[in-house]
Design a protein around this nucleic acid. Structure first.
Lengths: 230, 230
DNA sequence: GAACTGTAGATTGTCAACAATAGGCGATGT
DNA sequence: ACATCGCCTATTGTTGACAATCTACAGTTC
């Protein structure tokens, strides 16, 4: 499905995709704020390219829903409402649950390999928790979940989840929410990993559900005190 | 969320999106075959625009996964393998199940309104079955499911499902499969509608699962005899 | 005859100039 | 003082031209 395309294909990926990836990363890092307009000329200059390729990249991000386009006015970073947060985490729960089932059905080896990757991410996460590097923690949090979904081997699920992960990072960063209870963060992910390793389908689903519900509670609670639109 | 943007905003939607919608429709109707290259100059001419806006639209469809882009070679209609079919229907099952839960949780009025829309689609479908208009049947089939998901009111779920619906139509058309048992088609959808109306969550999930599994069986069986790549 | 090389054609990738539109700002009139 | 009208600037939308790259084919050599 995702063909290796032969060895050493230098820069084989389309330009628009490369630019889109860079922009997405900058957006989730909060370099662009929600509601902010993307000035095509300025950004094109910064990325050492011209408006043509940049506009193609912007269309990709519009399709993802990270940006919104208003005709004759330009593209803007999507402002996330509380309703959006609820949506995002509802869909994340659905996707992860589906991925969990697919992964468990895919056989013990697949599960084992995935657990191996997840363990490393949790170790890194614990390190960053000690350093209190929130940016890195948010990244690793999403990397954990993305890796989890990737384990299922369903390319469409992965593609869908990548957008959701980006939006989740926007939620966390843009609402300027630090993780409320940092101590349970590693613990919760470890719990999911343990249940996956044990193959306990039922409890795994419940754990994912709890994980998402907790996140929504934290995010919506903190955004209410910040007067974010409902 | 999806703002009406005021009354009478003539052609308010961005150009790239309009072009992308037109192209997607042409692709699912089989005007472009899988694997076929999209010649930018030719298509731009046909759509009475230039290569710039067209390329922006192509990027949107690449992001959806309907087209694939190879650097310095162009974009091509994605060729669906049997593995792809399994993926698409697995994700569809997950999305529809999620939508079903959300819809039932959204209250009786929402359910009732959605059922009203679904009933009309089923009536239309029965009509087209009588006429044996396969193209129209495929369209209504997807319209039924899209309307079902839309009932949940989750914009991200809707967006995700629109792509899946397009890919499903490509499966049906491109594999040149007529619906194998046309008589049960209306019946199966009516069954889903009945269970939704009755609010029988458990049976609804099972019905959706059966519906998808049956579709995969039909599609994979017919593509095997057609020597499609596994 | 097979393999390799160089050339030609077509197609995509990129860019810069031009056209069109929206929103801001000041002038004007009531 | 307030509202309205009209201009002005900044930004986007569109186009055509140019550069880079790939594929196919013919010619050459072993």
């Amino acid at each position: 499905m995702t063909a290796p395309d032969g060895p050493f294909v230098l820069e084989g990926r389309p330009t628009a995709q490369l630019i889109a990836d860079q922009l997405r990363e900058q957006i989730v890092q909060g370099i662009f704020r929600p509601g902010q307009q993307i000035n095509e000329s300025v950004i094109a200059g910064q990325l050492r390219t011209s408006r043509g390729p940049l506009r193609e990249a912007l269309q990709r991000l519009c399709q993802e829903g990270i940006l919104v386009s208003h005709r004759n006015r330009g593209v803007f970073v999507h402002e996330l409402s509380i309703q959006d947060i609820r949506e995002i985490y509802a869909v994340r729960e659905a996707v992860e649950s589906t991925a969990a089932d697919a992964l468990l059905d895919a056989g013990a080896k697949r599960v084992k390999d995935t657990c191996q990757l997840l363990k490393k991410i949790i170790r890194d996460m614990a390190k960053q928790v000690a350093l209190s590097d929130w940016q890195a923690i948010a990244r690793l949090d999403m990397e954990f979940h993305t890796t989890f979904v990737a384990g299922a081997g369903n390319t469409r699920l992965i593609r869908i989840y990548q957008t959701l992960a980006a939006e989740s990072r926007m939620c966390i960063l843009n609402l300027e929410v630090s993780y409320p209870r940092i101590d349970v963060l590693v613990e919760e992910h470890q719990n999911i990993l343990d249940l996956l390793e044990a193959g306990d389908r039922e409890e795994l689903h419940k754990a994912i559900k709890r994980h998402m519900q907790k996140a929504v509670e934290d995010l919506t609670a903190s955004s209410e005190e910040m007067h974010i639109a409902n």
